[in-house]
Nucleic acid binder design. Structure first.
Lengths: 243, 243
DNA sequence: CGATCAGTTGAGAATGGTCAAATTCGGTGG
DNA sequence: CCACCGAATTTGACCATTCTCAACTGATCG
């Protein structure tokens, strides 16, 4: 069943058991394959009738710009994640999405979603679950910015990325490849790039994590988890819930 | 049509045109009316099989606790908002919800939602939209914590509450009644109550907003909007989109 | 009419920001 | 293969926003 090759399929199937008909309809979301170079902006804040994408390969990030030119990164996306899903239902997109690496993604039109829901209600539930999981990540990110110190924030972000990438077979407890720059980290964590650098140095010197040359190495997974107060519950991983 | 009395109905109808059948099914979400005293915890972080609620009267807030006892308030809820929707689809709830004032709310079971989606696909779209709008608010809150100074955060929060309450006929450009304490504001904005107090004093002395005795008064709406960089786009207000 | 909770204010400390300058590194062209 | 370029990273010195601790006021409630 080649459909299950899709990272999105794998993710949704981990939540709901989807019938062959459901899978068939979901497969239609994967027509219209596109590739984009790194740095390309796929979704534009303020634009109307934005279509969404399903990321198949590579990394992207969603963000908002402030009038003064500051940038806040809301979340990073890896294979299996939706890009710009939220905005397809809005009059104008409330955020932008940019490719970090070269990426492959399937374009999904608002009409695909509406038709899909009408034909496969279970799919609607699965998509609502995926959206809820995305929201749970944003919420945890909010907690990160509101109530944790710089080092704890960094530890938390790296652990979350590690956990998500592990699900996609792109990482494990020892670490993962990571194309982010220290500017990305800064804009995600509400810090300056200068301070990010100092924080990374300190975490490395303490023997907790090393981030060098595009690779994150968890030197002491336990201690890092402890420092961050990291708990994977909000990622809602586990066996299929709805049968 | 008494169904339209429900604040949730009004909110959803502002987005999708719902048929009589859709309305009929949505009306079933409003069986099981409950009332709770202020301070009651309706949704419990870490609990399984949480049901959701639709808030009909009063204020509530959703939050997460940290191991060290710190609290981060994620969002405030007013009539027409879902409470705990995200968690109904999760194995365990990722957050808690507490009543600020005495409240009235309808309990919604996960099965209500699943059945409702199967019978009225348009309702699924409407609920996904509501969830997306909630997420958009969390995202804007995230930007607030990551990239704005204390005064700007406060200005933004008060303006957002004002805009949302205006939709529910509970406020206008001059201000609104507000049952929040300075501790609520502090835990929402990632500040201490002491600093919240200083920020409010300064905003008052500058003639921008006054928060006194449970009432927020916008003394200079324009200047406040400007200070906060507040733009209502993310609330996706406007005429019905789907007909 | 104490008790308790919300709000207020001050003094000093700290986390993280700003500014400025070096250094490393992956390309790129000669 | 090497010199060079721009982007990413690194470090230092100083500054500021916000926190911590501590005390005091005011309102509300049995």
């Amino acid at each position: 069943m080649s459909i299950l090759q899709s990272p999105l399929m794998r993710k949704l199937s981990a939540f709901v058991a989807l019938s062959d008909d459901d899978l068939e309809i979901l497969a239609r979301f994967h027509r219209r394959r596109r590739t984009f170079p790194s740095g390309h902006e796929l979704v534009h804040e303020g634009h109307r009738n934005q279509s969404a994408f399903i990321l198949a390969e590579g990394w992207a990030f969603s963000y908002k710009m402030l009038p003064n030119g500051d940038r806040q990164i809301v979340d990073f996306q890896i294979p299996g994640d939706f890009l710009g899903l939220r905005s397809t239902l809005f009059r104008t997109s409330d955020h932008s999405v940019e490719a970090i690496t070269p990426i492959k993604a399937s374009e999904v039109l608002t009409s695909d979603i509406l038709d899909g829901f009408a034909q496969a209600p279970r799919l609607a539930v699965a998509v609502l679950w995926a959206a809820s999981r995305d929201e749970a990540m944003v919420v945890e990110h909010l907690v990160n910015l509101g109530r944790r110190l710089a080092e704890e924030r960094m530890a938390h972000l790296l652990l979350e990325l590690g956990a998500r990438l592990t699900l996609a077979d792109m990482g494990d407890r020892t670490g993962f490849d990571c194309p982010l720059t220290q500017y990305h980290l800064a804009d995600a964590l509400g810090l300056t790039a200068v301070h990010v650098n100092r924080v990374l140095r300190h975490l490395r010197e303490e023997g907790l994590v090393t981030f060098r040359k595009g690779h994150v190495t968890f030197d002491d997974f336990e201690a890092l988890t402890d420092l961050a107060g990291f708990d994977t519950d909000y990622l809602d991983q586990g066996g299929p819930l709805l049968r």
